[in-house]
Simulated scan of single mutants.
Amino acid sequence: MNQWLAVVLAVASALCLAVGTQQQGTAVADRVPGRLSPRALPALLRSPRWLLGLGLLGAGTALNVTALGLATVTVVQPIGVVALVVTTLLHARHRRLRINRRTWAAIGMCTAGGAVFVTCAVSATDPARTISRWAEHTVVLALVVLVCVLGTAALLFRGSLGGTFYVVGAGILYGFVAVLVRLTLTRIQGSTGGPLDDVNWAAVGVGAAAAVLGGWFVQSAFAGGPPDVVIAGLTVLDPMVGVLLGMLVLGEAADGFSVVTGVLMAVAGAVAIVGVAVLSQHHPEVLARRAAPAGPRPPAPGAPAADPAAPDRAALHRPGSHA
Rank of each mutant, 00 (worst) to 15 (best):
P284T: 09
V263Q: 05
A294L: 13
G256L: 06
S258E: 11
A292F: 08
L287W: 03
V286C: 01
P284R: 11
G256Q: 09
G275D: 01
A277I: 13
L234T: 00
L248G: 03
S258K: 13
V263N: 05
L248W: 12
A266Q: 04
A306F: 01
P304K: 07
G275P: 02
S258M: 10
P308D: 09
S280T: 06
A253F: 05
P299N: 14
A277C: 02
V249A: 13
V278Y: 06
A270Q: 03
G256Y: 12
E252D: 15
A268K: 07
V267Q: 03
A277W: 10
P301S: 09
R297E: 15
A292W: 12
E285S: 14
E285G: 12
L264C: 15
P301E: 10
D255S: 15
M265A: 03
D255E: 14
A300I: 07
M247S: 02
L234W: 00
I273A: 12
A306S: 07
P299H: 13
A288V: 02
L264Q: 05
V276C: 14
H283R: 05
P298G: 13
P304E: 09
G246K: 08
V259Q: 09
V236E: 01
S280P: 06
P298V: 07
L279V: 10
A292H: 15
D255P: 04
